[in-house]
Design a protein around this nucleic acid. Sequence first.
RNA 1: GCUCGAGUGGUGGAAUUGGUAGACACGCAAGACUUAAAAUCUUGUGCCCAUUAGGGCGUGCGGGUUCAAGUCCCGCCUCGAGUACCA
Length: 1034
Amino acid sequence: MQYDFNKIEDDWQKYWANNKTFAAEDNSVKPKFYVLDMFPYPSGAGLHVGHPLGYIASDVYARYKRLEGYNVLHPMGYDSFGLPAEQYAIQTGQHPAVTTKTNIEGGTDKDGNVIPGYRKQLDKIGFSFDWDREVRTSNPNYYKWTQWIFKQIFNSWYNKESDKAESIDSLITKFEIEGNVNVNAATDFDETFSANDWNNWNEEEQLQLLMNYRLTYLSDTWVNWCPALGTVLANDEIKDGVSERGGHPVEQKLMRQWSMRITAYAERLLKDLDTVDWTDSIKDIQRNWIGKSTGASVQFAVFNSQSANNNFPTDDCELKTEFIEVFTTRPDTIFGVSFIVLAPEHELVSKITTTEQKDKIEAYQKAASLKSERDRMSNVKTISGEFTGAYVIHLFTKNKIPVWIGDYVLASYGTGAVMSVPCGDQRDWDFANHFKIAIPNIFKDKDISEAAYAEKDAVITNSDFLNDLPVKKATKLAIYEIEQRGLGKGKTQYKLRNAVFSRQRYWGEPFPVYYKDDVPYVIDDEFLPVELPEVEKYLPTEDGKPPLGRAKNWTYDKVLPNGEDLGGADWGLELNTMPGWAGSSWYFLRYMDPTNDNEFVAKDKVNYWQNVDLYIGGAEHATGHLLYSRFWTKFLYDLSYIPFIEPFKKMINQGMIQGNSAFLYRFDFTLKMGDKYNPENHLGSEKDYKIARDETEADIIYRAMERLPEVFFSKSYFDNYLDGSLTQEEIFNKIISAVPNITELLTKDDDVVIDTNKTKLTMIYADINLLDGDKLNIDEFRNSREYYNDAIFISEENGDHICGREVEKMSKSKYNVQTPDELVDKYGADTLRCYEMFLGPLEQHKPWDVQGITGVHGFLKKLWRLFHNEEAFTISEEEPTKEELKSLHKTIKKIKEDIERFAFNTPVSTFMICVNELTALKCNKREILSDLCIILSPYAPHIAEELWSKLGNTESITYAVFPKHNEEYLTESNHKYPISFNGKMKFLLDLPLTLSKEEIEKEVMANEQTAKYLAGNTPKKVIVVPNKIVNIVV
RNA sequence: GCUCGAGUGGUGGAAUUGGUAGACACGCAAGACUUAAAAUCUUGUGCCCAUUAGGGCGUGCGGGUUCAAGUCCCGCCUCGAGUACCA
């Protein structure tokens, strides 16, 4: 009886949908398990075989956990706001909501292309998602709560005393009572004010001040402006100086923007990485991104050379009016400072520069400001700088230290100034060497004549009170002294920047914010969501406002849906929208309670489901989504909305499935005008050749080209062509014999010849769907496009036309995309699922090769045949034999072990071995096959359900019980000992396991084969490891 | 440059704690069935030498530890990812 996978899969998918088989129970007595896939963006291109890889793995795990008795939450939804839909809307005028819906649900786009729809594609693979919990970030009932969370962040500040976010009201109370003197908050605001000051300010002034404390705040910030996309981008949305999406240039611009004070959480984001089970690589990326460094912040007093002589001023020098603050991670090297470098943009530069140096400094500043980020990045090696003419006083030695500017110092990091210690830092050393500045050595017995000594294992010398101390102790003491003398203090610095949260785009969440006299206020909860308005175009307005500037009545009028007017006014609403990561920072919470209209998630539900137990997705979100959702999780925890501090406990990052592109080698005819051609003829007369008066040479050549067929060479010719063993002439001869009438075609009425010096073989992409292995299906290829109809193929001697292959990214433009749909139609979803897992370890990148799928498909057919003879389903009720039980139980054991260590590829091989063994044993016994169905069902759920029901079960296999292996069936009485000589295995010897070491040795030494390999020598030593090996050392 | 990861047959990969390297598949070759093809089945398949028996070499390269190394240690090479003057 045939394995009709199409019908079986269809039937069971319907059954699961109708019976809501995978609905998760919200408050179950069962233990919970939360398996989540990273939120997909529903693009119009649909799924290719790389996308479901992670979904299959998570689905296998989810199904396995159900069999293990867990209540599994395994939801799916869409991150449906985003740039591609909006770019498409700008091009076509279609509302992004419409295209987004089509991309998810299927339909046709404006050009008439059929869009299969994400959902339909997913359904065909047989995932066990609880679709009743689907969310879409662009649905108002979802983004209502994104806006609500924004409001909570807006109404919070970060209290460093309690080390958590608190309500802004608690801060206001403090201000009212004692001003900000005792407030220890995450803020850049460093002035102090009293309660009196506070209470005397008007509302606007108070609100402006609170902006410095809110966890999301409006400020003028330097942002990454991308003119091509018409929006600002966050640091993690930029790769190599250009936008991650589209690769457009990015420039720095000062704009009024909403930002998220993620820096308040820097330390916790860093520290809590230790509590999650992620790969070291992702953790490292986050640690780097957060970039913690500890050291000291130190103030250097500026010594004004104009009014002082070269003698050193005293401590009470009245000229100490300006200070340069620097941050250093090596306070222990304070005595090695020989100059100070400021960033060219540093605000003190103009104040301290002497008149003699003014011109040079200004020229340098100008040159630096003209350099783009990219130039600065690419010019790392060139050393440049300029002396300001000013000096500072060394904290301890009181020496004069020159102040320079140089663009190797970044304005945006630390204080934009460094104390340069050339003996201990290579960049400082290079700078000093270049400008002939002194390089004092403060490391005992270290040579610094050729390079700086940056290792931290030196002993400090020439450093007054730090002499003879190792780095660690010297650092501690230096900080102590600096603090004692009031010259600075110990400090921790982070690279992490606050995240820009505004986007000048249409297709995103509107802010729940309106403006009264330019002061932002948040909208009352009863008016949420602020729904995205209709606009007639998705472009910025003529005066440069974001697209929402085009919306009519975009004001906070306080009219409730029921028509009740609560007395609003024409207060303008915020025109920016939120970035892509807003909705995805908390979506995993919404799945617990997707339809709740009163809360973003109900307390009892989040208390039951807790955080995600297993999160599967790509590694590309390391610094974006994975950092932001950790930040929001901690924030919501601080406000006691959720009971955990990390969103994703265990994460696996699946590797990319690469495309396997195919190439044809096309002969490129290059034509030129023939000898008989005379440009004179071109000028009107009709002598030897018919040349239309208005034709150019190019026209004639093009016309001749059109007559010529496409000629393709098989791979071996190309290889020979590349290494020179096939000459142009030989190629040409091949063509002449393949296209005998070539001269005729070429010439016809035109005088055109082939320019044999310029012809060449070039690689063009061939659609991988027209290939059978590496062989081109010539007929299908000819039919694929009209101009290939009469293409000529110069093939291998056996008639095959072989294509070149290369592994690269899977993409439409490379004609190497494989969609899951075609494979599901041809082999079935179960085959696809098993095959994608079989390909290799989940985390690894691997090339897609469709050929291997037949092996997996064959395995399922073989499995089917265990249950069926030619005509019908047939099963035996006999007692299984020892061998059959052993085969089954070792499989049960290995499958469980493998799945639990997240090895998804090896179980498929294990199933194959088991089916091969049972086939060899001709086993069709119920007791064996019934358990086999269960353990296979996470991988191949449709066939498992079908066979399970044929075995007489009336309930879905989903909630069957994963069998326990019985160790008794696996224990052996004998072991085939590999007998090695000097570690090289020579033969096997079957011995009972009951033998002692001595007995084994005796048996081995008595064996005649041993004697042969010993060849008369006496063994020096015999190592016997019972149940493992025997090694004889000769 | 720095950080992290990976290198095993023609291909994808297996070998979980140092103990038979190459499981399981693909591909290839030979054969069976068939008018033929597909499907299916059987056998072989790391490389080299040898008719066989057998021998030698083999997990990127070079060393080391060990009775025994794909696995542990040291040094290097190549590829991939992240990051980029972070003081």
